[in-house]
Design a protein around this nucleic acid. Structure first.
Lengths: 188, 188
DNA sequence: TTTTTATCATACATTTTGTATGTTATTTGA
DNA sequence: TCAAATAACATACAAAATGTATGATAAAAA
């Protein structure tokens, strides 16, 4: 098996990620073939198969790496109860993360449907909520089941975030945050 | 070219839709091959190619048909300004639609990521909003650009709707609606 | 430096796709 | 109702893409 710490492996995977993203700038993920990725990356096809089953496997690995980095950043949020403050800080971190990885995210969105990213982001946010708040479906927030509330705000914020990526800089980061500040009631 | 009204064409397409949905109950869309669909539907592969370029083309056509029917139902909403009443009625229609087409939607979600449906639903809702409200990006609702507000509520409601499909009947339709009633402020 | 092993080059069988052609069956519309 | 139109079928085949196997080479680990 391949060692996760072997420099050659790390290098190969990174090149595969970059090549996939490059290709996604020009055509949809559906239309990209494994052989395209290998050609772009100059990595032997048999090496590809040594690491991944198929291109979906590769994409999931790429996403998983992004998830880990985003989750780490989300840890900086010091709020420990589900509140407006928590949500606003979460959004701040999310938007900043997107901004700093704009190259990656806009490549993903360029020729693909939004859904490919939405799943990813929802998963990250819910992981953060559940780890942080020891979230379980029994908890009630302002007379509502927490899972409903979380889904509602997560969906809303992510949808705005995604739109923000595609329509480059229509609003500044600060504008966006202030808009959302108006959308979330002070007492959730 | 194939006539849209020819009974043979209608029948063939319907069978292809049903077969695809059946297959999606058992495996992910990615893993389904055109030849699988033809085998399942007993439709000749050359006939498939006479109608669709590839399986994505077929899926889009299936979605487009669902969209049309949902859009038609959304027309019953009599609210003409973007308000809580409009959103609640929209949600009511959406939830009812999902409920009446549960077979279809749960098949789609069974072995696939949510994203595949989210795109679809966001598109429908935004089409309704824009047609109904002659929505353009200049409009301001309670000091916010309408597009931001729409994205926020659409994302939130859809995320709840999707969850509701997968977790069968955890909450009743009425419960769900009342929860959301609490989440949306009376004056948007 | 030696050993380990990831990558590469190459080859090949198999699967899946995409297209083409003539025949048959069904639908349309006069 | 019947002739004309055409959708669906059976079949065949070329091309594309995948998936796997093997030994040689290069790079990293120890």
């Amino acid at each position: 098996m391949h060692s996760k710490t072997d420099l050659r492996v790390i290098k190969t995977k990174r090149i595969l990620f970059d090549s996939l993203l490059n290709l996604m700038k020009h055509k949809s993920f559906e239309k990209i073939k494994i052989s395209d990725i290998c050609e772009e990356s100059l990595i032997n096809r048999s090496t590809f198969y040594a690491h991944y089953e198929d291109k979906y496997d590769l994409l999931m690995d790429l996403f998983e790496e992004q998830k880990q980095s985003l989750l780490k950043e989300l840890k900086d949020n010091e709020n420990s109860i589900f509140s407006k403050e928590y949500l606003m800080e979460l959004l701040n971190i999310l938007i900043t993360h997107i901004d700093e990885n704009r190259e990656t995210y806009s490549a993903i969105l360029m020729n693909n449907r939004n859904g490919i990213l939405i799943d990813f982001l929802i998963d990250v946010i819910e992981r953060d909520v559940s780890e942080r708040l020891k979230y379980n479906s029994g908890i009630i927030v302002s007379d509502l089941p927490l899972d409903i509330v979380v889904k509602f705000y997560a969906g809303g914020l992510i949808n705005i975030g995604i739109t923000w990526i595609t329509r480059n800089e229509k609003y500044s980061k600060e504008e966006l945050l202030s808009y959302i500040d108006n959308l979330i009631p002070n007492k959730i």
